[in-house]
């Protein structure tokens, strides 16, 4: 007997232009076991009772994608929205970051990365969002560190550099990886810890003032590579990062206005922008109040030119019922 798709099975609604990618994408989405429905009109949103994910084609169905996101924005509990685009245009990114319902921005380069889509859909459908191993080929060795203060980043960063030099990665790509590790760790050490009332403990401190974390505030840092991608991961135990903050900071920094750099005490407000600009894929996993995990994927297999030619992905995953 074949598998029967019941009426309660999770639905993926996908709005897509009339192009050859559509069938390929359908197969990839359906391969996750979800029930996938192709839609041509915003009205489809009202016809699906249990829509768990909306997939949009920002390249060849841009007007429809924008309409769908506007419609979802007024719904009380909109499903996650995955937008696929090959655009590297700053103006497009600024526009996309202004859509509060967009949770996943998937880069389409020469072709869609099926593994990225499958991992993304699986994470959303199964509410199992954490771990860098999902993004690398099975069998790789992961290097792990526990960081107990602002000075604790130097050794892992030096180890990361030595590791990438051993792999023979491009020098500028090594610089990017090191920069990402620096920003991720500083962010987790200074911005994540909060007291029992939820008030940030170290965020307003000058970054020249060292911080020593309490044992329950320690940050986990890890990295691994499968030869194609380097994955860098930083996790804290607070889960305070809000997706809105991420989108707002990225949008503000891309606009390059007078307020691009924060003049307040603490960080310069550029960290997330630097991280995004230095990666192929930036993944943010949050279990509110429990854990934040930021993962960066950098394609280290080619030259720097190969890297800059690729569109970028951003994923914001929120674990449901985290506590």
């Amino acid at each position: 007997m074949g598998v029967v798709t019941s009426a309660v099975s999770p639905e993926i609604l996908f709005f897509w232009g009339d192009n050859k990618d559509r069938r390929a994408l359908f197969k990839v989405l359906a391969a996750t076991g979800a029930s996938v429905r192709y839609a041509e009109d915003v009205a489809a949103l009202d016809q699906v009772a249990n829509c768990r994910l909306v997939v949009l084609d920002y390249d060849s169905a841009r007007a429809l994608s924008t309409d769908v996101m506007r419609r979802l924005a007024v719904m009380p509990l909109p499903p996650p929205v995955l937008v696929v685009t090959s655009s590297r245009d700053k103006g497009d990114l600024i526009e996309l970051f202004s859509h509060t319902v967009m949770t996943n921005l998937v880069a389409k380069n020469q072709d869609l990365l099926a593994s990225e889509l499958i991992v993304t859909v699986r994470k959303i459908m199964h509410n199992h969002i954490f771990g860098l191993e999902k993004y690398l080929t099975w069998g790789v060795h992961t290097y792990e560190y526990s960081i107990s203060g602002s000075d604790g980043r130097h050794q892992p960063m030096a180890d990361l550099r030595a590791y990438l030099e051993r792999l023979g990665a491009n020098r500028r790509l090594i610089g990017l990886a090191e920069g990402v590790a620096d920003e991720l760790i500083q962010n987790a050490v200074y911005n994540a810890p909060a007291d029992s009332a939820g008030k940030p403990k170290y965020a307003s401190r000058s970054r020249t003032e060292p911080v020593v974390l309490l044992p329950n505030e320690e940050v986990r840092f890890s990295f691994a590579s499968d030869g194609r991608f380097l994955a860098i991961c930083v996790a804290d135990r607070f889960g305070r990062l809000e997706t809105e903050t991420v989108r707002n900071y990225l949008r503000k920094c891309f606009l390059q206005g007078e307020d691009q750099i924060d003049s307040k005490q603490g960080g310069a407000g550029l960290g997330l922008y630097y991280i995004f600009q230095s990666l192929n894929h930036f993944i943010i996993n949050v279990a509110p109040g429990v854990r934040t995990e930021l993962i960066g994927l950098l394609d280290i297999s080619g030259t720097f030119k190969d890297f800059v030619q690729q569109a970028k992905s951003l994923h914001l995953f929120l674990q449901r019922n985290a506590k």
């Binding site: 090191e178 920069g179 620096d182 500083q186 003049s263 960080g267 310069a268 550029l270 922008y273 630097y274």
Partner: peptide
């Protein structure tokens, strides 16, 4: 100049 981080950019500006 070998590296510049986000805090360094603010210092430089």
């Amino acid at each position: 100049v070998k590296r510049i981080n986000s805090c360094g950019v603010r210092e430089w500006v």
